[in-house]
Amino acid sequence: MTQPTQSALTPEVRSMIGVKGEVVEAWGVVDAEYLRRFAQAIMDPDPRFWDEEFASSTPYGEIVTPPIMVSYMASRVPPGTEDPITKAFEEDPMSDGIGRVHRHGELPRVPTNLVRVLNAGNELEIYKYPSIGDKIFFQHSYSDIRERVGRDGKPFLIITRETRYSNQKDETLCITRASTIRR
């Protein structure tokens, strides 16, 4: 007799849908130097990012920044905190360079024994370009957890983490969703 396949979407896993992390302020502000480096790294020569006079004539009325530039501010390590790179290599001389660093605002882990993690895709929604001088706030949440069954007949989870980025006026700048497969 075949054993019934046990669902990976247990009540404990399902209860994580909608769980939100704390609202966290990213270190620093959106500044012209970060904008310069970011725009050059994506090779975007748009004068809306650096020509103040031209930018003032656009619908935005000011210099703006690429929409999801601020999403990388969320992973900034504030000065005065333990150096995560040194720590990562102390723990593991063959560290991949990322380490196992706790970051502010992280969500509690989904209680599953499925440990293999694969990137399943990303979504972006853009509402306003960040401005120079903006403070950036972000908040993660589990917006969706679904179960699927693989070709091998084993269930796996697709976990979607949504992050809302906002400014000091609580205007939504963009929303990102990152989905990962847990097998």
């Binding site: 748009d46 619908p59 999801i68 895709g121 979504e123 972006l124 929604e125 853009i126």
Partner: peptide, 21 residues
């Protein structure tokens, strides 16, 4: 988003995108 921005300039909007890697 840069690609979508450029297409919609100067007065449109690159609203949303989804993709896999």
């Amino acid at each position: 988003p840069q690609f979508l921005k450029d297409f919609t300039l100067p007065g449109g909007w690159p609203w949303k995108a989804r993709f896999e890697h």
